[in-house]
Design a protein around this nucleic acid. Structure first.
Lengths: 343, 343
DNA sequence: CAAGGCCATTAAAACGTTTTTGGCCTCGCA
DNA sequence: TGCGAGGCCAAAAACGTTTTAATGGCCTTG
């Protein structure tokens, strides 16, 4: 008999009665075990097990003023990048005893607002968010409630704010530099909307690399801007490039989904990768290594991003006085595979 | 001035005072708008907006006895299959005003238990779970708390339980049948652990198809069982098959991740797909269509699975008396692409 | 004109914890 | 033996909402 009776939920009071102590003592066993005598403690713990007591999180939140949940708002849970981040968040949160409420905005501002509202209602202890645009106002209404916010995959512009990001300029420079190292002189950058910071930064990096190679970015770096960042858009980009004639020597895609679609389009058009055209993606998602011509990419520490962001957030929540805000910037890493194999 | 003053959180009492009504009336405006006079209602709503009031979810949960969150426990959030399901759950829950707490077990039973505990603490209104094994006992401790459970991608064995699943036997039969239709006579089934129900059911289906074609399953259907179900395992399976000589005419993989890895392994070994060997996967994840040789697959209504499961769950929670338990079984669908193009 | 019924609202209790305050008991020391 | 200190625990208030029972006013009806 290790579970309580069916259907009913057992409260701290019943545990207290059964153990012959007061509810306050049971609460202490739960939250400040060191403050209660060893013998009493073990007796209470025994009863807790016997009755199958589990704390009522809402009552706890109500009285304590804060919950043990954090909110995670991402732009596209279907993108393996965010999935990996979410896995990191979930693991770290779980280790620290927190639950994660997931909000997926799908890039829709209305959905994002609705999610923020839910987070506010749930009185999440803190919020992890990859903002879908640069508007800081929406976050203020959360912050004004006293909820800490950590930006994920987005550098904070203000010092009173933690953030965890990866240097996209370096990444863009590395990717383009790698293509140039392979002998390419005419590059294309296939990207999603340039209103997205990541896309824009990677473009800047690529331009830097082109300039550093003594070329004129305006001539040597064509830009193909697609409305979406998935495989379908990548394939359309390939068709566009092929139809336009005068293919570049090498192509840099703003993410791997685009690159995989592009790869397929190129192969279907009878082109060889990397012989006719080299190709590099971004994110190094699992599928990059598994595609027919394995895809070179720029690896980001996604899982780690999620873990660290969670750690920062909970440190800020639990130790507000000693907490030092940090804007962490990781460096991405080149992963060279077949799609950019140099001749 | 549409937001309340910074730092402090405004309660229902302050709204009541400001609007010149009692807290109970404000609560009624929130929960039973029809019970309050139109004029009073609009006045209260006005004040709510002005003060930026948002309901304290925990207080509400505590008093009302149930929350507006549901738990979602999946086996591997990194698998696009589950990601799609999660997206469906999240969308439907959000539409119905519920938040989703995500739990990822990574196939680890301990993590699953920990997640269930968190769900219990949070007093989730209901639970969606893809059980990682057949043990029903773990769920009983949740159900005994009065929390409704809907099984996802797993048929319920009991009539007092909702479930949403896809017929894996039909799927296996369809996949193998398609390969046989293409002229194959020697098949291989590359699968994850056969302790996983889905893997086993798909195998049964494949055996049925082979038998229906007048062949002996024991001879015509080789089975390659891998410990994992990702691309890496698929590639190793390819190496295994190639090294073993005597390749099959066609290969059926228990999921697309395996198939994509296998595809790469075959191509690297200089084999042509589908000319030398045909290949079909399972799940029809996005990447299946984007691989160099586009992958035939068995499509499951994943997103819909998530939506319907959520709908069933919340109907059960909100209308316990009128709710009729349902065990829904969808039929999967063949998606033929290049990897099984018949000569 | 009085009685009864209906409607909108209020007052107050309750949900299950946490936390503060204070009291008892024991132990050590003078 | 007396006193102070400190450890352990009990009692009670408080968190913000929901909900039930009660109240008051107004309208209808006899």
């Amino acid at each position: 008999m290790t579970t309580g009776s069916a259907g009913s939920t057992v409260s701290i009071k019943e545990v207290a009665a059964q153990a012959g102590v007061s509810p306050g003592t049971v609460s202490n066993v739960l939250n400040r075990p060191h403050k209660v005598a060893a013998e009493t403690r073990s007796r209470v713990e025994q009863v807790i097990r016997e009755l199958g007591f589990v704390r009522h999180g809402s009552a706890s939140t109500l009285r304590a003023g804060h919950s043990r949940t954090i909110g995670l708002s991402v732009i596209d849970i279907g993108n393996p990048f965010f999935t990996d981040v979410a896995a990191g968040v979930e693991d770290m949160a779980s280790e620290l005893g927190y639950a994660v409420i997931l909000g997926n905005s799908s890039g829709d501002r209305l959905k994002e607002e609705r999610n923020l509202r839910v987070f506010a209602e749930q009185r999440v202890r803190g919020l992890l968010i990859t903002p879908s645009d640069e508007d800081p106002g929406r976050l203020d209404v959360i912050r004004h409630r006293g909820i800490s916010v950590v930006l994920v995959d987005h550098p904070a512009h203000r010092p009173d704010q933690c953030s965890v990001a990866v240097n996209d300029i370096t990444g863009g420079r590395t990717a383009a530099g790698h293509l140039l190292d392979g002998g390419a002189t005419r590059l294309s950058y296939v990207t999603g909307p340039l209103t997205i910071r990541q896309c824009l930064d990677r473009k800047s990096g690529a331009e830097q690399a082109v300039a550093a190679a003594g070329l004129d970015p305006a001539r040597a770096l064509g830009v193909v801007e697609m409305p979406a960042m998935n495989a379908k858009a990548g394939q359309r980009a390939a068709e566009k490039l092929v139809a336009g004639g005068r293919l570049p020597d090498a192509i840099f895609c703003a993410n791997d989904l685009l690159a995989l679609g592009l790869l397929r389009g190129l192969l279907q058009a009878g082109l060889r990768v990397p012989d006719d055209v080299a190709l590099i993606g971004y994110d190094d998602i699992d599928f990059a290594a598994a595609s027919a011509v394995s895809l070179s990419s720029i690896r980001q520490p996604t899982y780690k991003l999620g873990r660290i962001a969670t750690e920062l957030l909970l440190d800020e929540c639990e130790n507000p006085e000693s907490h030092a805000h940090q804007q962490i910037m990781f460096q991405p890493e080149l992963v060279a595979r077949e799609s950019t194999r140099h001749p």
